[in-house]
Design a protein around this nucleic acid. Structure first.
Length: 271
DNA sequence: AAGTTTAGCAACCGCTCCGTT
DNA sequence: AAACGGAGCGGTTGCTAAACT
C-alpha cells in the first residue's frame, strides 16, 4: 500500500486549472527557472493553492513553451507505433523521442486513436501482432525465452505488417517483433530482472536503429527542458541543478544516466 | 430542440524506485 | 543496512464537447 496522496491537504485546489493559476505558475517559473517546478516554495504553494505535484504536471503537460499543440503528423504516428513496439507502454521513453510531445499526450493519443486504428487492422496494439496469433506468440515467448531465431524468423514471415490489406492508406511502418527476451537497455521494464541472461542485445534484433549513446551537459536553467520533449527518462530527467547537494561524483553519475538512444530518422522504412 | 451516447483530453491517484538520512 | 521521503511514471477517472437519435 502506498503512501497517502500528496494532495490530501485540505487547502489545495483540485480539478481544472484556471487561467489565473496558469499565469501565476508561469510567472513563478519564469522567475525561478524550470528546476523549481517540483520544488515550489511554501509561499508559492500557498499562493497557488496547488500541490507541487500538480504544478509539475501542469507545467510539463500544458504550459511548457516548447510544447507542440495540435494534431499528430503521420510521421509522428509512425514513430509512436515503432517506439511502442520497442518500449511498450513506456510513455516517457517514447515521449523523449518526440520533441514537443508529452508522455500524457502520447498516452492519450495512443489509447484513443492508434489503438483503435490497429484493432481495425486486426493488429493487437500490445503485442503488435495479428490478433489471432497472440496466443501462439505468448506460448512461444513463455516456453522459449532464449530462442531468438523463433521470434525473428516469425517476424520475417510477418503476418501482421501494416501492409495488410486495409482501407485507409497505411503508413509504411512495419511492426517490430520484439522478442520477449530482448535486453531492454534503458527501458526499465518489470521483466528486466530476468531479461539479460542469454537475451539478445537490441542491436542484434534491430540493426536498423542507431543505438549510439549521447551524453549532453545539462544547462543551468533549461536542462530540465530536457533534450527533447518531456524527456522524462526515468529518474534522469529533472536532475535539478538546484539540487546542489550532489557531489561531483554523483553529478557525473547522473550525467551518465542521461544517455539516450537516438533513433535514426525514419525507422524501419523498408521491411 | 432536447436528451443520450461517445470521444478526447486534462488531471488525479497509487505505485515504484532512487537518493538521503 | 534499513527506513524514510520525494520524484516521476503509468493507469484511471471525470469532465467537456461533439455526434447522434
Amino acid at each position: 500500500m502506498g503512501r497517502s496522496p500528496c494532495c490530501e491537504k485540505e487547502h489545495t485546489n483540485k480539478g481544472a486549472w484556471t487561467r489565473e493559476e496558469d499565469e501565476r505558475l508561469i510567472n513563478y517559473i519564469k522567475l525561478h527557472g524550470e528546476g523549481c517546478v517540483g520544488d515550489l516554495s511554501p509561499k508559492m504553494l500557498v499562493c497557488l493553492l496547488r500541490c507541487g505535484k500538480s504544478c509539475r504536471l501542469r507545467w510539463i503537460n500544458y504550459l511548457r513553451p516548447d510544447l507542440k499543440r495540435g494534431n499528430f503528423t503521420e510521421e509522428e504516428n509512425e514513430l509512436i507505433i515503432n517506439l511502442h513496439s520497442l518500449f511498450g507502454n513506456k510513455w516517457s521513453l517514447i515521449a523523449a523521442r518526440l520533441p514537443g510531445r508529452t508522455d500524457n499526450e502520447i498516452k492519450n493519443y495512443w489509447n484513443t486513436h492508434i489503438k483503435r486504428k490497429l484493432y481495425s487492422r486486426g493488429i493487437d496494439p500490445q503485442t503488435h501482432r495479428a490478433l489471432g496469433s497472440v496466443s501462439s506468440m505468448n506460448k512461444t515467448s513463455n516456453n522459449n525465452s532464449n530462442n531468438c531465431s523463433n521470434s525473428t524468423s516469425s517476424s520475417s514471415s510477418n503476418v501482421n505488417r501494416f501492409q495488410l490489406e486495409t482501407k485507409e492508406s497505411v503508413p509504411l511502418v512495419p511492426l517490430m517483433q520484439v522478442p520477449a527476451n530482448i535486453d531492454n537497455g534503458g527501458a526499465d521494464s518489470a521483466e528486466d530482472s530476468n531479461g539479460s541472461s542469454g537475451g539478445l542485445s537490441r542491436e542484434e534484433v534491430f540493426p536498423q536503429i542507431n543505438l549510439e549513446l549521447s551524453i549532453g551537459l545539462p544547462f543551468p536553467f533549461q536542462q530540465s527542458r530536457f533534450s527533447s520533449g518531456s524527456g522524462k527518462a526515468k529518474r534522469v530527467a529533472a536532475v535539478p541543478v538546484s539540487s546542489q547537494r550532489c557531489s561531483m561524483q554523483q553529478l557525473r553519475q547522473k550525467l551518465l544516466m542521461r544517455m539516450c538512444i537516438l533513433p535514426t530518422g525514419m525507422l524501419y522504412q523498408e521491411f
